[in-house]
Design a protein around this nucleic acid. Structure first.
Length: 449
RNA sequence: GUGGCUGUAGCUCAGUUGGUUAGAGCACCGGAUUGUGGUUCCGGGGGUCGAGGGUUCGAGUCCCUUCAGCCACCCCA
């Protein structure tokens, strides 16, 4: 094909290819989250990428409506691509709750699409790793959500992180007391920006967008800027919501969550009561969580969620409360990269077998099969090229070990085990189904990674 | 969606007031070295200078449009 007809290979704005060295850590985090969710009894589900447009519009507000990928399918139905996993979940439970029963715990790891403007760490196609508990208002579900978030971050490899917790009913209670209950959405959006903008600008925004008086703004700020440790914040909150049942219940719930997570073994200081955490989404009605990495506070929350007490109200009359959270996979990966927690590797296999003696392919394939039976990934190079080149290939890809076996080794039924990181080499026997080799590999590859 | 900045090789970039055939480093492939990689040396493949149009005798360089990336707002994972 000549140059003029050639199609330029390119990807759409906000859509990405994932090369092996990015996909390997990505899959590792996905596998980790799957393992943690399952360890708490969350079950996997999946839903279609496309939904009837009417399912997706109306929930989530104007912004999401604008960002929705929508088109007519070949049958001229109006359809949309899911922009999160919560709305499909709402439809899913409304449709199937009869056969699922409650409480229903599910996780859903899948791609979503939003036609919004791109920015660093923000794309038009990205993956969400959600878990939710549907059909119970119990504080136990709130507590479990925090525990899952905690285990998840630790399983991925973090120790330096904090889960910030708040309860929107505390804010609602205060808004009722000061007389701003009718404007809660813009007030909450303003409060959510406190860490970014500072108290003064937040006050101005509340006055401008929510019609608050300076006095009202001041009262709200007084509460959301409380600091000084969980117990002290709780003690300070109580008088502020006193006499308002909604607010009092919220404070009690927060107190219970903090006590229970501590009892479950979450270290002191990991879970932080932060009254300024509001979460932008309108559908949260109770507890809200955000997780920050201590080394990268500016990265924003890497795992967030909260309680919504009428998830499926658009699709069914049955009241279905729930709580859930979502791992910010791309943001977390960006953070791990910045913290140099990601090893540059572009092979998922540990063991490299150079194709050395040109007429001995069968011997290499047999060796590789023995290594794989022991549970290791093994790759045989496809061409009998110069050994140096093959080792260079193995080194670049990030293999851990090379098994060198040429004429000499074959004659003695042994092979060299070469640790690529150091160059250190030992010779082991292949007798008896390569038992010595397998033992040596287990020893060398025991280290994590 | 709004505003600003930036687009030269896979990556990071040089390229003089507009002037002949567009360069470097790294990366990639091959050789030096037909049995040992991450060092060195030599060679090679890769660019219609993001794309389209305009001004000009002449455009990588100036102008317009468009696409993409980055930043801020908005919103959010």
């Amino acid at each position: 094909m000549n140059r003029a007809n050639r199609i330029e290979p390119r990807t759409l704005k906000g859509f990405r290819d994932y090369l092996p060295h990015m996909m390997i850590p990505r899959e590792r985090i996905i596998d980790t989250s799957r393992r943690v969710y399952r360890s708490y009894g969350f079950s996997p589900i999946d839903t279609p990428a496309l939904e009837y447009l009417e399912i997706l519009t109306g929930k989530g507000g104007e912004e999401t409506d604008k960002q929705l990928y929508r088109f007519q399918d070949p049958g001229e139905r109006w359809v949309g691509m899911r922009f999160d996993l919560t709305v499909p979940l709402a439809r899913f439970v409304a449709q199937h709750i009869g056969e699922l029963g409650t409480p229903f715990k599910r996780y859903h790891i899948a791609t979503v699409w939003r036609g919004e403007n791109t920015q660093h760490g923000r794309y038009r196609e990205f993956m969400q790793c959600d878990f939710d508990t549907i059909g119970t208002k119990s504080v136990a579900a709130d507590i479990e959500t925090a525990l899952v978030m905690h285990d998840l971050l630790r399983a991925v490899g973090f120790e330096q992180f904090r889960i910030h917790v708040n309860d929107r009913t505390v804010l609602s209670g205060l808004l009722e007391k000061v007389g701003l209950a009718a404007h809660s959405a813009p007030v909450l959006r303003a409060i959510d920006k406190l860490s970014k903008l500072g108290a003064e600008k937040v006050a101005n925004e509340m006055i401008a967008t929510a019609g608050a008086t300076p006095h009202q703004a001041d009262e709200i700020l007084q509460m959301v800027t409380l600091t000084g440790g969980n117990q002290r914040v709780l003690a300070a909150l109580e008088p502020l919501v006193a006499g308002n049942a909604t607010g009092e219940a919220g404070v009690a719930r927060l107190r219970e969550i903090l006590a229970a997570t501590a009892a479950a073994g979450v270290p002191d200081g990991r879970i932080v009561l932060d009254v300024s955490i509001a979460r932008g989404l309108d559908y949260y009605t109770g507890v809200v969580y955000e997780t920050f990495l201590e080394q990268l506070p500016k990265l924003g929350s890497v795992c967030s969620g909260g309680r919504y007490d009428n998830l499926a109200g658009l699709y069914t009359d049955q009241e279905l409360p729930g709580i859930g959270a979502s791992l910010g996979l791309d943001r977390l990966l960006a953070g791990m990269e910045e913290l140099e927690m990601i090893e540059r590797v572009s092979t998922p296999a540990e063991v490299f077998i150079p194709y050395f003696a040109a007429d001995q392919l069968h011997a290499y394939l047999r060796l590789a099969a023995q290594v794989r039976r022991a549970g290791f990934g093994a790759e045989v190079y496809p061409e009998a090229k110069r050994l140096g080149q093959q080792l260079k290939y193995a080194d670049r890809r990030g293999f851990r070990v090379a098994l060198v076996m040429g004429e000499n080794e074959l004659a003695e039924n042994v092979c060299q085990v070469k640790l690529l990181a150091t160059g250190g080499t030992s010779t082991v026997s292949l007798a008896g189904d390569a038992a010595d080799l397998i033992a040596e590999l287990r020893r060398l590859l025991a280290a994590p990674g």
